[in-house]
Design a protein around this nucleic acid. Structure first.
Lengths: 123, 123
DNA sequence: TCAATAGTTCATGTTTTCGGAACTTTTGGA
DNA sequence: TCCAAAAGTTCCGAAAACATGAACTATTGA
């Protein structure tokens, strides 16, 4: 199996971080990996959103996250262990990831509210 | 001419902001519009990067920025005047735009340094 | 009324993304 | 040792997104 490519911290670009995090599945994965203390396998995320994500697609998403520098993946036996590189990135681009994750939190909280309001109105 | 669509502040999504700003031409445009006090026309950006951007492409870029909610465009006579919506967005997603713009600044500063170092070495 | 200017739209070729099917690696039995 | 199962990756064809030249539209100033 080919060794996995990870960019060195200085080669991580803002473009690729923003691109990687502009996809709902990928932010969901990244947020969860960042939040969890231990490392996470890929297949743990098959049901990260409403409809299940096919594993080939999931594999691509992990590749994008890895090559943009957001996560570090390591093969452990038959499975893959993924950890967040957020502290490295924080050192180079202070505040970036925190404000993005925060913005998504704000957004989903408001989405929540709207959904509830709609439900109330339709009763 | 069709009226231009602008999302209301509550309909602006983080996904679309990140996607819009994951393109070098678009960040360059957005940064400049945000920095300038007065409004800017589209054609002012034909030479925003090394190779000149064709105007059809430029038009698409402005559409992306507009529909993601990052700028507001208004027709004034024959030309288009564009202003940044960053203060609105700041209210909804605090710190987001600032940290993105800052990250790009950090990156281009480091790109500068590297280029210079390469030049020094090759003399 | 017309030419010039600023942008948009359309058509087309190119690139990216998605996802099913087949493939590779590793491991835990029989 | 050999095989089957599990976890991912790779390959490939279809669909979507992008880029850009050419044609088009709207507005203004002569």
């Amino acid at each position: 199996m080919k060794p996995l490519f990870h960019p060195s911290i200085d080669d991580i670009s803002v473009e690729s971080i923003l691109h990687a995090l502009s996809d709902p599945v990928r932010v969901a994965i990244f947020t969860q990996i960042t939040a969890s203390q231990c490392s996470a396998t890929c297949s743990a995320f098959q049901n990260i959103v409403e409809q299940p994500v096919p594993k080939s697609t999931l594999s691509q998403h992990f590749k994008v996250l890895r090559e943009s520098g957001l996560i570090r993946s390591e093969r452990k036996g038959v499975e893959m262990h993924n950890v967040s590189r957020c502290s490295e990135i924080e050192a180079r681009f202070p505040g970036l990831l925190a404000s993005i994750v925060n913005a998504y939190t704000v957004q989903s909280r408001q989405g929540e509210k709207r959904r509830k309001a709609r439900t109330r109105r339709s009763r």
